[in-house]
Design a protein around this nucleic acid. Sequence first.
DNA 1: GCCTCCCGAACGACCGTTCAATCACCCTCT
DNA 2: AGAGGGTGATTGAACGGTCGTTCGGGAGGC
Lengths: 217, 217
Amino acid sequence: MRGTGKEAILDAARQEFGERGYAAVSIRDIARRAGVSLSAMYHYYPGKQDLLHALVNGSGQAYFDACREELASAGDDPGEQLAAVVRATVRYRAEYRLESSLTLTEWRSMSEEGLAEFRRRRLDGTRMFEQIIEDGVAQGVFRTPHPKDARRGVIAMCNAVAQWYRESGEESVPDLAERYVELALVLVEYRPAARRSRIPRISTPAPAPTRMSPDNP
Amino acid sequence: MRGTGKEAILDAARQEFGERGYAAVSIRDIARRAGVSLSAMYHYYPGKQDLLHALVNGSGQAYFDACREELASAGDDPGEQLAAVVRATVRYRAEYRLESSLTLTEWRSMSEEGLAEFRRRRLDGTRMFEQIIEDGVAQGVFRTPHPKDARRGVIAMCNAVAQWYRESGEESVPDLAERYVELALVLVEYRPAARRSRIPRISTPAPAPTRMSPDNP
DNA sequence: GCCTCCCGAACGACCGTTCAATCACCCTCT
DNA sequence: AGAGGGTGATTGAACGGTCGTTCGGGAGGC
């Protein structure tokens, strides 16, 4: 496996937890896949629960970093801002689908303290979308009569990418992300402030030279 | 628990599997919740796996029944048809959220034969949406340039209802379903064949007197 | 001689499953 | 009407196996 010891263990845990679910995986499975002994794991991580915690936390951090990075190059227009977070979300879900499905479905296996932290972060994510959509509605550029449902729809749409996307496909992640940006803007019924064509396409400001950090859980 | 024996066991299994996941639940947990002994379970079901199978299968059957019922009162217009399946899906996800999240996330715990059947049914569901959207695009009433992504978006949106909806809320399920119908039609960029207002609302043909069967796993 | 890294063996608890036995009930034969 | 017997429902105890975790110790560099 890549790296040695600690990294190999975390890689194996990500793979196993992500594919079969926390409860279905034994720490012996992880050790076997990582190519280390059972006790070597306990040298690095105090227990099974801590492995999950490390993965979920690292993934959450990386996701928000990606969102912030993308948002930094967006202007004041809520349309651009929504495009930024949708782009960041879809890319993250596609490129880190294992940790994404882990975060999205295995949080219920987390211990109480880890769960509180997770819920706090998830709420932050929700509020990020919520704020942008509220702004857009207030400014009159998002015409949807159901901002709350539209927000849930956009988030669900993006998150679901982690469930079906497979990297071996002919699908290019940036193209996928841009299509989802279009869909999200349609869903909130985006009409740019400056008058232009009826069905709007956001003025894509050169497809983001910055990328998220390629390592990290 | 409601009923006796067999029903109580299936109820308990639905609750436990739906809340904590198949692998995290022991059959002793189920027996305890059902108020029966461990061996009573084995009198009715040959094993843990069969409980999951019964739940997933029953749920899948009930969902398709609901879709068919709703589709029966829809006309030829793809807009009406999409509205029908979205309405049926959202209602099912909200009213049967436990079996829904079971079907949506615990299928990977199923044995090989059960999994094949499940995949076949899921493919049928996908194709149902796919066919309707393809028809709409072909007829020119759905203007979305990305039918495949729109289909995935609509399905993800509807399915996600099972994750956040709580029946104790102030939310009315039929209202929720109608809002999601609107969102879905926006997402596929529905423009009715008969010319009318710019932003379309489907002509709701009296809010479906028929309901899905209230029992059933 | 003390850290870091790593190992095999073992612990008690719990897992899914099996089994022999008991209870309650209806049908049948006398 | 009452005895006999089969049948389905239900029980507690036990099986072998796997679980997460712990423990005592051995290499090897500082």
